[in-house]
Nucleic acid binder design. Structure first.
Lengths: 143, 143
DNA sequence: CTAGGAGTTCAAGTCGACTCGAAGTCAACG
DNA sequence: CGTTGACTTCGAGTCGACTTGAACTCCTAG
């Protein structure tokens, strides 16, 4: 049913689309981050399907949101095993989603702290009282 | 003017307040992350002022938001040098603030991608059509 | 007086995720 | 035919931020 009409992509093309260096794409492959095998041409060079290229892009998101390679690998293993373990895959995704949500919250908290300090400097610099900002002194340290 | 009435804290107490292991507190000190010297008692043990403890807590926020130790060090050096470089300190903080804001945005983008995948699983599992979720196939891979 | 627990210093090890380098292959161009 | 330049494999190196460990000191409670 699925006709073989997809354009196949070289590692360079996938690299461009994903922003991942070719070295990293090979590294990911060897770490088992692709469910199916990546085809090769006669000369042994990698040929990626569109799906695989897309998955690589998803991987960049998983990674940039802090999913460790072994966990991506675990997910991919489930996919490789075929239907029947969707709940487990779902659990991995949902858990990671929650972890990322927490990360966002934590970052925003840190952002608030930093912003408070930024504001103190802004005001002091505007008021010309910046020299009161000293050491871990009263103004600077306490907020 | 500043009377010496502050209660001084042991490394253990600071560790509790900040969540940083004592090892890490010593490590930070040796990396120059404190503007002033940390006092010692007769037995050579560290005594932190409230200000220093507070700064340690700020450090946890700077770190958790990805400010590298060398950059914190740079900021602290400016503080150590005393008044006159507030603009430079301000620049460091403001830049980091922006970096964190970008981080938040990126994370939220990743979160969106992940959430899309989560939703696909939710729906498929609810509809009992989960076995259509296969490999990098049409349903799973494309979104 | 001794045992426990917190503290000290300094050096070395760990961890994850790349990142780089060497040595070689291959297709196309001038 | 020679030289780019993108590709291949394999193994080793890097980086930042801890983290661990060994060997030691000190105070307090029993």
């Amino acid at each position: 049913m699925t006709t073989e009409t997809e354009a196949l992509l070289s590692i360079g093309e996938v690299s461009e689309r994903t922003g991942l260096p070719t070295h990293t794409l090979r590294f990911y492959e060897q770490e088992g981050l692709f469910a199916g095998p990546i085809r090769r041409n006669a000369a042994g060079r990698r040929l990626y399907t569109e799906e695989q290229a897309h998955w690589a892009r998803v991987c960049t998101k998983l990674r940039s949101s802090g999913m460790p390679l072994p966990e991506i690998h675990r997910y991919v293993d489930l996919v490789r095993q075929g239907p029947g373990n969707e709940e487990e895959r779902f659990a991995i995704l949902r858990e990671h989603e929650q972890k990322v949500a927490r990360q966002v919250a934590d970052l925003q908290e840190a952002l608030a702290v930093i912003h408070t300090k930024v504001e103190i400097y802004e005001e002091a610099l505007a008021a010309g009282t910046a020299d009161e900002l000293w050491r871990d002194g009263p103004t600077c340290g306490r907020s």
